[in-house]
Design a protein around this nucleic acid. Structure first.
Lengths: 129, 129
DNA sequence: CCTTGCCATGGAGTACGCTCAAGGGTATAG
DNA sequence: CTATACCCTTGAGCGTACTCCATGGCAAGG
């Protein structure tokens, strides 16, 4: 089965090598294997974890909290309920963020309309006095 | 006309007094007046600016950039085009963020379904072996 | 064999957005 | 008049998430 060095993994995930090492230090990557000379070895399944980490981070979860989630995952089925609860909270949070963005988009669209009108008037005013 | 102290403005905007003073120091609040003893005096119109700042910040614009925008605003009509462009860029950015959130929501929903199924199987498995 | 390039660690440094503390002025209720 | 609850400034400190650097190991091609 194909394996990846940290550099290849970083490239594939669009993260920096330093970021991956930082995540590892913070306990987010306990699933990453090591070769006998100490190199990190990424396998295909690891990318599912990395994508999940990326997803959780993008929804505003702190690395610390993601670390907690990863630890739960490693503990197995006893933490299923906790992890479900975490995702349910995350879901609500994402919905909140989407609602907030929709409102801000409205405000921005409104501003764009205003600015466009103001610019139109300026050019028209200059052309036909 | 009603005026607000920094404490009242902070309360109304759901920001801390320190945050408002920090914004001021960073050049985001050149429109805020001062009383003769040096106190900041917020007027009704100022809240439109504060809400705009909040909006831009929520879409991911850095305080530095917001400061640039505010300075443009103070310069008047000559910067209309620049400001319009800024909002157009911001609009694209918000759309990107919304698309990204939608994808993450899908992933989260998928995970929730998986976890719920796993929990169901666990309880059913225990009840009917 | 040696160079080049990627791997490792530990620890320091950075950017951002606050947040707090020290030291001092002001205003209003009792 | 004084107490208390605001206000001011300057400057330091903090949490998060990287990012960079020094130092050193390993490996594959020429």
């Amino acid at each position: 089965m194909k394996t990846y060095t940290i550099g290849q993994a970083a490239q594939r995930m669009n993260l920096s090598v330093d970021t991956l090492r930082y995540y590892d230090r913070e306990g987010l990557l306990p699933f990453v294997a090591r070769s006998k000379n100490g190199y990190r070895v990424f396998h295909e399944e690891d990318f599912a974890w990395l994508e999940l980490i990326t997803c959780l981070k993008a929804t505003g979860l702190e690395l610390k909290e993601i670390g907690v989630f990863i630890r739960w995952s490693m503990e197995g089925d006893v933490t299923l309920q906790k992890r479900l609860d975490l995702f349910l909270v995350r879901r609500e949070e994402v919905l909140r963020q989407m609602a907030s963005l929709r409102q801000h988009l409205e405000k921005i669209d409104h501003k764009i309309a205003l600015y466009q009108r103001a610019l139109d008037e300026k050019t028209n005013g200059a052309k036909s006095p």
